[in-house]
Design a protein around this nucleic acid. Sequence first.
DNA 1: GTTAGCACTCGAAGTTGTTGAGTGCTAACA
DNA 2: TGTTAGCACTCAACAACTTCGAGTGCTAAC
Lengths: 353, 353
Amino acid sequence: MELDERKVKILQAIIKTYLETGEPVGSRTISKMEGLNLSSATIRNEMADLEEMGYILQPHTSAGRIPSDAGYRLYVDQMMAEKALEREERALVPKDDEHEKLLAKVDRLETLLQQVAKVLAYNTNYATMVTGPNYKNTNVKFVQLSQVDDTQLLAVIVVGSNVIKNKMIDVDERIPNDELLKLNVLLNTFLTGVSVKEIDLELIQTMKQQAGIYADILEHIFDGILDAVRQASETEVYTSGANNILKYPELGDMNKAGELLEVLEEKKALNHFIADDDSGVSNQYGIQVYIGDETPVETLNDCSVVTATYELEEGVRGKIGIIGPKRMDYDKVVTTLRNLTDELDTIFKNKKT
Amino acid sequence: MELDERKVKILQAIIKTYLETGEPVGSRTISKMEGLNLSSATIRNEMADLEEMGYILQPHTSAGRIPSDAGYRLYVDQMMAEKALEREERALVPKDDEHEKLLAKVDRLETLLQQVAKVLAYNTNYATMVTGPNYKNTNVKFVQLSQVDDTQLLAVIVVGSNVIKNKMIDVDERIPNDELLKLNVLLNTFLTGVSVKEIDLELIQTMKQQAGIYADILEHIFDGILDAVRQASETEVYTSGANNILKYPELGDMNKAGELLEVLEEKKALNHFIADDDSGVSNQYGIQVYIGDETPVETLNDCSVVTATYELEEGVRGKIGIIGPKRMDYDKVVTTLRNLTDELDTIFKNKKT
DNA sequence: GTTAGCACTCGAAGTTGTTGAGTGCTAACA
DNA sequence: TGTTAGCACTCAACAACTTCGAGTGCTAAC
């Protein structure tokens, strides 16, 4: 069977209506719509075909049809393709007042990202997530060891765009001032300008050797630093709007909703979205749409997830994403995400100069 | 009308049964229980009295009774009084395996507190919150300004029990090394050993004067530091187990649950629980029970909240708390909280030595 | 290929009756 | 005077049944 243009039009009509109403849509509803002038009977025939092809399904006999995952997929792909064409229209999108709200808090990256999640949730009425940028490609900018008191050293590491990590290191005895100075020189020589992912046990080993006779004493200093670096390269995830999940009956039953909340709270699972830039079809503008089973997290199999990529600086990227029901306003979501990443990119670019 | 002993016993029986079953409890159920041997008719009379006195209420005619807020209050007060007596029994409570789980991550206070919230949620099946300690009574331990690059200074401030705050400060030009040194000496002279709440505009003003001719240039350095201190004294709130809310039908309907989730996510509102150590009746062991309308947050008026106080060090305290339905296992919750705070106190005490 | 017509399906919603847990009241009892 | 048995009454919850209507698939005619 072939998927001719009329079938596609009908499918689109079905999906659009379903997205709006949330109820199975029947043949009469479609036949009454302007555009294609066909009787309900004809629509019925086409619908039977579409069902056979797997794009729609019937919750039960004598009910209308709802889109299947495959149906959504087709719809989204179509939409993304259209969006790619009408690109020039984008310049017209007026800046909304998110802009200011966002900028108000720019001083700390974590706060900003958390804020982004919140604004996004507020604007879309879906649950949202924002992953911190992947620092592995960033360079170390500054390292410093300071003596806080007799038994404690403080290691401060600044990487990339002013992300600061601290680590307290316990020591047995106070380190003489000049030794500390030497140590700082050593650390900066070895680490400054080096990308985070290059700092591994091996490099630390080399440094230990350089430290010469102090190597033993400095054992856990280096370990502490390695620790801080590792900590810096851990990706953090911010979420918001979890309560929005309850707004959609198809997700709102106690069991599903509970699991979803858990995933959002736990956050670890959401890391699955940051790695794979390859999978997923609609990869335009760095935007990816995962529908139902396409999501890498099993708990989210009844949801759709849309993610977009923002760039903090060359090669340092993170994702912002939306988690909602499969019956999601994909169009609006994609637009919103696109605008928001644009805005973020601008903020980061300006910030840097 | 007087609340004699028998009435109290009946009330307790009603509440206990209701806590277990969650269903309105009728006169027969109570009369069949061992303890007091009374016919259902007698119980009915007593119940009518209890209702008149406002301790219980009827969802509708021909249904059993459920406790009112006042009823819960009486019950909790009674329980707390008993607990105060059987104090010696506490030594017997076996350490459970939370202990190790907790200790595993002690290195960062934030991680620890987040973990505490999680463990508590896991053990009780309620939503939980943990507020960070109130640093206002802590002393500054260490301050340092470092030049990160030509236009940026990094201020590091360590307060109290190794809580580290960072602040990036933009400057117009590179500060000469010796000036930086002087500045650091100045900062440490003025700030080290001073409690966080004492650092205010005035003190900063004095420091600015001391800085002499550099005062102007250093304007936003000091501002930055004040900022960092303020940041340090902001109380953070960690939450967990939000999904547990959905487990209790009386809170689980979309509207209420949604609002609750919002409060838990927003966290700001939860700060209302940290201030008032005075209100609330059951103030033993630093444990407070807020029932229904007693909660300082309106959204939580259908919930009960139980909080306990932990002590990070002398005078530096925070709260851990549980948010659940009014039909909450108060006994278990109080015990769990008491054990957990005990454990925390031990951890912090050992850590310090 | 399209459409009107028709019999059929089946969930949703409304109706009705039954059940049973629970009540309040009264009268008798200890 | 407090306690209890007995009884009529109430009312949510449940199940059985009906009705309604949106929707279907199929067939025959255009």
